[in-house]
């Protein structure tokens, strides 16, 4: 332990770290709650197909399942990158 260690910024309290981690994971799990188990798989396969045409990352695709009285709506949205990304283009999307 160095003599000047006391000058260093005190580490973030672990409770704060725990709260932040939980806030994120709980929000994520709530958004997929009640959805069928195949949704993550569907999302990955769709991504593969879309990648053949445009270069997007996983975060660019969101899948929502909404239940209305009597019917369910599967909503898929893909944020396309700006510019002209051809399939197999080396430059990844930056947007």
């Amino acid at each position: 332990m160095g003599i000047l260690d006391f000058l260093k910024r005190r580490p973030e309290p672990t409770a704060t770290v725990a709260k932040e981690r939980l806030r994120i994971i709980v929000a994520q799990e709530r958004s997929t709650r009640g959805a069928p188990d195949y949704l993550p798989l569907l999302r990955n396969e769709l991504l593969e197909v879309i990648k053949k045409y445009v270069h997007v990352d996983l975060d660019a695709i969101s899948i929502n399942l909404e239940r209305d009285s009597g019917h369910e709506v599967l909503e898929l949205s893909v944020a396309l990158p700006e510019g002209n990304n051809k399939p197999g283009a080396a430059a990844p999307a930056t947007s």
């Binding site: 309290p13 672990t14 409770a15 704060t16 725990a18 709260k19 939980l22 806030r23 709980v26």
Partner: peptide
Amino acid sequence: VGEMLSVKDVEDIL
């Protein structure tokens, strides 16, 4: 001392 989630933290998260 910041080692444990507080009542408010747990209420906020859930």
